[in-house]
């Protein structure tokens, strides 16, 4: 049962399936009803499942997440949409002080199966607050699980799994990949939500990426292949927890690692990966773990984002530097 669909459509189908499978699943957010969300991820769901299940909320993110917590306490499984990355912060208090900690506070007696979907990252020429990559701010919080698919199949299945998960999951959607198409096998049993996969095998160096940057790394691998270099690409898929075993196995083969993300390098996911992998594979490493990512500066205006975002050249430059060691 393989179909070709875009990431956006895969997410839409996944939400539809979740609503069909479990009457406790609710969709909540700004403009998720008739409009189908600003990216149309919830397109048609309001019409088919009604406003009792697909809920246009007041314009208040703290309210959305806070009430989603209450609904979860009552046995529902809310899937919340935050309209853009930069607008999750009014809800940050609820996410960090309540959502993430309630299970522990209640000594495990309550569960918080809330999914917070956040379109993230740049590359769409948007105004301020619409292009950010705040994933590290969530991965840093114990109690939250953080994942990000890079392709339609993962979009479909990882969202299913996030909704089934009894813990809060922050689900980062690579918005500039919404329209990228790929194969989705809606009947195949998925693997673990938090495992990383080798998206491209190679022997000279490992690139670790997630979400929107996986495609860039695959392109880098293709470009490097023309020059006789063999790049392995690991799609992390999950940022909390991180599947260090898969990265480690790859690095033990290649001896080199470059971590790539859009988010600023300073205190980013790459820092955590570099530290852990250095600890685990010190004697396998031929070069220090390098990182390619955003700068310690506000996400720039759209006309500068091409230079700001790590692209093929910046990734290949890091590859060169790692191989030159």
């Amino acid at each position: 049962m393989t179909q070709t669909m875009a990431v956006a459509k895969a997410l839409n189908e996944s939400l539809r399936k979740a609503l069909e499978n479990d009457p406790k699943v609710l969709i909540m957010g700004e403009d998720v009803g008739k409009l189908g969300g600003v990216f149309r991820i919830t397109d048609g769901l309001h019409k088919d499942f009604g406003e009792g299940r697909v809920i246009d909320t007041p314009l208040a993110e703290s309210g959305i997440v806070g009430t989603a917590i209450g609904l979860a306490l009552r046995g529902y499984r809310p899937v919340v949409e935050i309209q853009f990355d930069g607008f999750v912060f009014p809800a940050y208090d609820q996410i960090v002080t309540q959502l993430a900690k309630m299970h522990a506070r209640a000594l495990g007696k309550i569960k918080l199966p809330v999914v917070i979907r956040i379109p993230y990252g740049g590359g769409i020429g948007a105004v301020e607050h619409h292009s950010e990559s705040p994933e590290a701010l969530f991965a840093h919080i114990p109690g939250l699980k953080v994942v990000s698919p890079s392709n339609p199949s993962d979009a479909y299945w990882m969202l299913q799994q996030a909704i089934e998960c009894d813990d809060p999951v922050i689900f980062f959607e690579p918005k500039r990949r919404y329209w990228d198409k790929g194969e989705v096998d809606v009947s195949a049993l998925p693997g673990d939500l938090h495992r990383a996969v080798v998206a491209q095998q190679g022997t000279d160096i490992t690139l670790a990426a997630y979400g929107p940057m996986v495609k860039v790394c695959l392109e880098a691998a293709a470009a490097a292949a023309n020059e006789g270099r063999s790049l392995e690409v690991v799609d992390l898929r999950s940022l909390s927890p991180i599947d260090f075993d898969t990265i480690q196995a790859s690095v033990e083969r290649t001896g080199r690692l470059v971590v790539v993300h859009e988010a600023p390098v300073f205190y980013g996911a790459g820092a955590e990966i570099a530290a852990r992998i250095t600890e685990r594979c010190f004697y396998h490493l031929e070069a220090p773990v390098l990182r390619v990512g955003g700068f310690h500066a506000p996400y720039p205006p759209a006309r500068l984002e091409e230079e700001y975002l790590p692209g093929l050249d910046r990734v290949l430059d890091a590859v060169d530097r790692a191989l030159a060691f």
């Binding site: 300073f266 700068f295 310690h296 500066a297 506000p298 720039p300 205006p301 006309r303 500068l304 700001y308």
Partner: peptide
């Protein structure tokens, strides 16, 4: 005009930052 690329690093701090300078 489009801003120059290095505008990315401008005005991040009023008092400057060694980190920004390095990057």
């Amino acid at each position: 005009p489009n801003p120059g690329t290095m505008a990315i690093f401008e005005n991040v701090y009023a008092d400057g930052s060694a980190l920004v300078d390095e990057e």
